[in-house]
Simulated scan of single mutants.
Amino acid sequence: MNTRGAAGPPMSLEGIDHALRRRTEERDRVGGDLLDLDAHATHRLLTGMTPEGETGRRWDAARGATVTLWWLFDAYRRVLDQAAELRAAGRPDLEALTALLTGPSVELKPGDVPVEKRSLLRAAGEWVTLDAALARMDHAYREIAATVAAIDDAWSALLPTLDEADAARRAALDLAGGLGAPDPELDRLGDTLDRLRAAVTADPLGSAGRRDEIASVAGAVTARRAALERAAGIRDDYETRAGRLGERIDEVAEAESAARRARDVVLVKIADPALPALPDQAGALRDRLAALATVRGRWLELAGRMADLERAVEDSLSRATAIGESIAGLIGRRDELRGRLTAYQAKAARLGRAEDLALAALYGKARDLLWTAPCDLRGATVAVAEYQRAINRIGAAG
Results as ranks from 00 to 15, higher is better:
269 K>L: 09
385 A>V: 12
198 A>V: 02
188 R>F: 01
115 V>I: 12
114 P>N: 01
153 D>K: 12
300 L>E: 15
64 G>Q: 13
206 G>A: 07
137 M>T: 09
58 R>M: 11
289 L>W: 14
269 K>P: 00
350 R>L: 10
359 L>M: 07
221 V>H: 05
58 R>Y: 06
138 D>R: 11
102 T>P: 06
136 R>T: 12
271 A>E: 10
397 A>T: 02
291 A>W: 11
163 D>K: 08
282 A>Q: 03
394 I>L: 15
360 A>K: 04
142 R>Y: 01
12 S>D: 09
342 T>K: 13
182 P>Q: 05
178 G>C: 07
320 A>Q: 10
200 V>G: 04
252 V>L: 04
109 K>S: 09
53 G>K: 04
222 T>P: 07
247 E>Y: 01
345 Q>Y: 10
148 V>N: 07
232 A>T: 04
333 R>D: 08
132 A>E: 14
16 I>L: 10
28 D>L: 13
236 D>Q: 11
213 E>Y: 07
50 T>V: 10
338 R>N: 10
67 V>W: 07
370 L>F: 03
392 N>C: 00
361 A>C: 00
4 R>A: 04
198 A>H: 01
20 L>D: 08
43 H>R: 15
101 L>Y: 08
243 G>W: 04
331 I>M: 14
308 D>H: 11
83 A>P: 15
134 L>C: 03
366 A>V: 09
205 L>R: 06
326 S>W: 00
26 E>F: 02
60 D>R: 12
339 G>K: 11
78 R>S: 15
110 P>Q: 00
325 E>I: 06
250 D>E: 13
263 R>K: 14
299 W>C: 07
81 D>T: 11
64 G>W: 03
206 G>D: 05
333 R>P: 00
229 E>N: 00
381 T>E: 12
282 A>G: 02
12 S>C: 03
236 D>G: 07
206 G>R: 08
201 T>K: 14
305 R>N: 08
183 D>E: 09
103 G>W: 09
355 E>D: 14
284 A>F: 02
259 A>T: 12
395 G>L: 05
141 Y>V: 01
263 R>D: 06
312 A>W: 05
42 T>R: 13
85 E>T: 13
396 A>K: 11
82 Q>I: 03
335 D>P: 00
267 L>C: 04
187 D>M: 01
369 L>W: 12
252 V>G: 01
371 W>E: 12
311 R>M: 07
133 A>L: 01
282 A>V: 01
386 E>P: 00
311 R>W: 08
203 D>C: 06
361 A>F: 05
309 L>M: 04
243 G>E: 05
318 S>E: 15
225 R>M: 03
210 R>H: 12
53 G>R: 02
108 L>G: 04
166 D>I: 06
316 S>A: 15
288 R>H: 03
368 D>R: 06
259 A>C: 09
288 R>L: 00
1 M>L: 11
165 A>Q: 02
362 L>K: 02
161 T>L: 05
57 R>S: 12
44 R>C: 10
47 T>W: 13
396 A>Q: 13
386 E>A: 13
60 D>F: 02
254 E>W: 07
9 P>E: 14
371 W>K: 04
137 M>N: 10
213 E>S: 09
338 R>K: 14
303 A>L: 10
304 G>T: 03
378 R>V: 03
190 G>A: 15
321 T>K: 13
283 G>R: 14
18 H>K: 15
96 A>Q: 10
228 L>Y: 02
238 Y>T: 05
325 E>G: 03
299 W>D: 07
155 W>T: 06
